[in-house]
Design a protein around this nucleic acid. Structure first.
Lengths: 231, 231
DNA sequence: GCTGTTACGGTACTCGGTACCATACCAAGG
DNA sequence: CCTTGGTATGGTACCGAGTACCGTAACAGC
């Protein structure tokens, strides 16, 4: 016999799909699961929580994965931590898609999910802040990157949930999206001896720009930006 | 005599500060405002909403500002739309800080606020998607940028709410943060006749890279990325 | 057989939120 | 002046989520 927790989850998904979230009471779910109402609220903090039964575990898993990394292995750790969540959803299959249908149509559930995303972002941000140090603007960069990681993950996940792509394609798109994010937030400050990062966008030809480029590359100030090369 | 709406807002902020959000009932707020409970729920959709009385108006203002722009003026429009929100909070003064204290300590209010942020993100994303077109990956880039704009705004706003910085400093940091975000998401795909965007990070010298650079610039495929220049 | 722990069910209560009805006010028009 | 209709308001009744508390059955170890 499955645990009362599992029976509650099954009952909830079945009833929410059949009659809708709002039209289903906690009493209905409890009755269908064959348990008392008290047991429901002992098992789940709220009626919404029963839809996200593995959230706490996933959040902890992400934290655990990130904890094993240092600033040197940050990029891999962030990618794998996010992949952990993706793989979990892919493994859930139809249930994840049913949840998606619910979160799209019921405002209360949508808000609940964005609250979950916020928790993921907080987790990523805490580690990224730690790894990025406390230089000026590092906090903002860490927050932006944490946000981007979660957003990229969710973007790909939603494409799978909408059945735009297969699970295999989702994994490929996830890898591409994550490497895109990592490239965007790659530390732009080169170390000693490296050529400076140069970003160009101009109608002038390359030959035309070469003198300014040489000056930039040879300059000790590696943070000089495009605008200084314009004059 | 102020409108019942204003009296309800004042009463709510006062009572929430005095007894806390959870310990204050809607009846308490209504009684203090001298109106009936029915009027409260006619004026605000929920008990939480009374804390964010201007949210709908701000969201509409952001949408209006973005609607006046085209893809050519997108950068300015996005910055100014976000600045609209920042200025509103700065003008609110102490009330904004009181709200911040509440959202930090009451989970229900925190979630409510993240839901508001999500709405801002949706608004920005819709316009950015429109402006960025439907090329591969544009949807992801639009979503990343929309979220980055909101995150950057909120990062600076929180620094002011925590009284880390003054209002004048907040406006300066906001400008810096927004230009940082815009630089990160600057369109890397040049239009016809422009030299391609080039991003370099290497230990090789510029002379060493020049042949590959020329090839990139002359190539009709303007999306060719750095890795292709490596071989 | 006794006892402490754990899981569970039932009851009663608070309070947010909705539906519905009644009323007071006010403006337009006859 | 009276009527009519819209608008803002208050009151009452109700639903259902969430909490507090109590009682009890199952089950472990001693």
């Amino acid at each position: 016999m499955p645990t009362s927790r599992d029976r509650l989850i099954d009952a909830a998904f079945a009833l929410f799909a059949e009659h809708g979230f709002d039209a289903t009471t906690v009493d209905d779910v409890s009755a269908r699961a064959g348990v008392g109402r008290t047991t429901f609220f002992r098992t789940f903090r709220s009626k919404e929580d029963v839809i996200f039964p593995d959230h706490d575990a996933m959040l902890a898993a992400v934290g655990d994965r990130l904890r094993t990394a240092t600033s040197a292995t940050a990029a891999i750790a962030v990618t794998e931590a996010a992949r952990l969540v993706l793989e979990h959803y892919l493994a859930e299959g139809a249930r994840a898609q049913q949840r998606y249908r619910l979160t799209r149509s019921v405002p209360a559930l949508r808000n609940r999910e964005t609250a979950s995303l916020q928790q993921y972002q907080r987790t990523f941000r805490a580690f990224l802040q730690d790894w990025m140090g406390s230089t000026a603007g590092a906090e903002l960069r860490a927050e932006l990157m944490a946000n981007a990681v979660v957003t990229a993950h969710n973007h790909v996940l939603r494409r799978w949930l909408r059945e735009n792509i297969s699970a295999a394609e989702a994994e490929k798109e996830f890898a591409a999206a994550m490497s895109h994010v990592l490239r965007i937030f790659a530390d732009p400050a080169p170390n000693d001896g490296e050529t400076a990062v140069v970003v160009l966008r101009t109608t002038r030809s390359l030959d035309d720009l070469l003198p300014a480029l040489r000056e930039l590359v040879d300059s000790p100030d590696t943070t000089t930006d495009l605008r200084k090369a314009r004059s």
